[in-house]
Design a protein around this nucleic acid. Structure first.
Lengths: 351, 351
DNA sequence: AGCAATTCTTAAAACGTATTAAGCGCTACT
DNA sequence: AGTAGCGCTTAATACGTTTTAAGAATTGCT
């Protein structure tokens, strides 16, 4: 009814009504109810007044005093809710939300980037500072921003490994998972592998490549590594590779599943059966909207767990609990239908 | 290296470094750049110091003072990122993010609900207060919370109509869209409609029902309104309805598309052709993950636009610009394949 | 009664910012 | 030379809370 802007009641209003001082009101609200300093009678008057005026504490004032405001930042170098990539981001968001909720933190989404190419430092001001700390996420990061952030030692945890000195992160253990893949192929009898890498050189790519090399070294397999554009994967090319002795291909996934799809198509056109004639492993999981009907063998990226762990690490940092600054999470293997023993050999150690 | 907890720099730190007073720092930060009081030299020293220390305004202190902190709350009565309902929420989130970003606001996601059933008032404290204002969203709201919020006149806009006195909202104009549907069916020659309502009594349901009644009143059609559980829609029932003269069914959508799917199945079993024997209109759009291959005729809910408009309204409120407090957005019609003229009549005005 | 111990209550000082009125050193008039 | 005016800077205050140290009131003891 009355639309006048009514000031919210403060502790002083309560104090006046209850006939005590403002400090007493605060004490009633904050004391440990176990061994209380305040007699029941006084407490009663205060709580009555609180009820009568509908008082609620001003969170700004409260957090101003305490230094912490229980806000966790979430900064993405791309849009937070991108329609075309929701499958990529959603599990991360989910994990961040869940863990933050459990720990009693609210989330600040830094969306106000806009004009300046989504820099953290808009007008020389670190906007992240409104939160106690921040979880970072994104494919196309700005390294300068990251370095500056770390320099200021603003508490930050990146989801995914990023090669920035002193930067805390939680990442998927691509190296170990890829190594496992190689061991598994070797165990099935494959002796000649082909590694198809995406043309970008990101940290995840490096980790996978490293794991691949490790696996090869341990098994003493032959290999052929090459960087491939999806357009280059033709039926002819594929046939050529097989003729060269290759029995399994290890594929790095791309954002949009193009390479895997191209491979699938080329194989169809060349009348190559997967996994009969050729085993294929995908180093990660394709987006769920993928058109590919194929259930690729490989491993999955524990996105939600990564996000939760990142939040956990950040909060530990904030609350001065001892915390490791880097963490690798295992990638659960995915048993699909694209891997089998090679045609020629029976299966196990044919020599 | 040094893990010591370093206090975040304040204006006083800046002031010391720049050799000015704290007030000057504040002025540099807040003045209207047009007619500035502060000479370029001083301003330069201050901004240099800001950059050097990585200063960021403390939002708590700022909003305590009465200023704005350019934080917009987003409160959902359910989990913010629910996996099973991402199609429902995503367009809203998208709209909120886009509009907030354009207006230079960051977003606060209130996730720290926890134990008390996602109440806004945790321990009697209105947690929304950290933000300047808040956009609300959710199917299963807590009316008491809403009323209390409005009572405190904390700036709030709900996405969707909610029957709470003085509550601002942006909603889809279900009434108008439903009325249109009835007019359209009447225009095609339908004279006997059946209205299948979901068993819940939410505001959107009320609006649709109202529009339906209006449409009927304007066209003078016969109708049969009933609340139906999906299980009740059987082939027999359907046959019975048709025998009674019904040529078109108007269906209220549910969260999970159950009613529409049940209808489809029952029609199949009763050998009733849609739209040949029976026209069906869906009052809203089914989730995109819907199994139903059917392209229902009806209208779609402008979720992203609703969200954007809600943010716009909220910011107008915050910045003391005149703003309407309720807004209905039109629902664009969807021309599907489930509506046709009734069998019996040729099509237009048979009398 | 006198004094110490205990119980209750409060004044006061932060926390970091925005804002206002006043202060300072100038210049430009009269 | 005196003073009004201007340009720049700052001291002071308020915002609502938590927290601490000290004050007041009451009790207990000799």
């Amino acid at each position: 009814m009355n639309a006048q802007k009514r000031r919210k009641p403060t502790q002083i209003d309560i104090a006046r009504l209850a006939g005590v001082s403002q400090s007493t009101v605060s004490l009633v609200l904050n004391e440990d109810p176990a061994r209380s300093q305040i007699p029941a009678a006084t407490r009663q008057r205060v709580t009555d007044a609180i009820r009568e005026l509908g008082y609620t504490a001003n969170p700004a004032a409260r957090s101003l005093k305490g230094g912490r405001n229980h806000l966790l930042g979430l900064y993405t170098f791309e849009t937070v809710f991108p329609l075309d990539q929701r499958d990529f981001y959603y599990p991360f968001l989910l994990g961040v939300e869940e863990e933050a909720a459990e720990r009693g933190y609210d989330l600040v989404l830094f969306t106000s980037a806009g004009s300046d190419g989504r820099s953290i430092y808009a007008g020389g001001v670190n906007r992240l500072g409104v939160a106690d700390g921040c979880v970072l996420l994104g494919r196309h990061i700005r390294r300068d921003d990251l370095e500056r952030l770390v320099g200021e030692d603003f508490p930050v945890v990146f989801i995914g490994r990023r090669g920035v000195e002193e930067l805390s992160f939680v990442a998927a253990d691509y190296a170990a998972a890829t190594r496992e893949v190689v061991l598994k192929l070797a165990g099935l009898g494959h002796r000649d592998l082909l590694y198809l890498a995406a043309p970008e050189d990101s940290e995840p790519s490096q980790d996978r490549a490293e794991g691949y090399r490790q696996g090869l070294a341990e098994t003493g397999l032959a290999h052929d590594e090459r960087v491939v554009e999806p357009g280059e994967i033709t039926a002819d090319r594929l046939t050529e590779w097989l003729a060269g002795g290759v029995t399994a291909i290890v594929v790095e996934p791309t954002e949009d599943d193009r390479v895997a799809v191209a491979l699938q198509e080329a194989a169809g056109r060349a009348r190559i059966d997967i996994p009969g004639d050729l085993s294929v492993v995908l180093l990660g999981d394709p987006p769920s909207w993928s058109a590919s009907p194929r259930d690729w063998t490989g491993f999955s990226i524990p996105r939600t767990e990564m996000a939760r762990a990142a939040v956990e690490m950040l909060i530990d940092l904030l609350e001065d609990r001892p915390a490791r600054r880097t963490l690798f999470l295992p990638c659960p293997p995915v048993e699909g239908d694209s891997v089998a023993p090679p045609r020629a050999t029976g299966g196990d150690r044919p020599w």
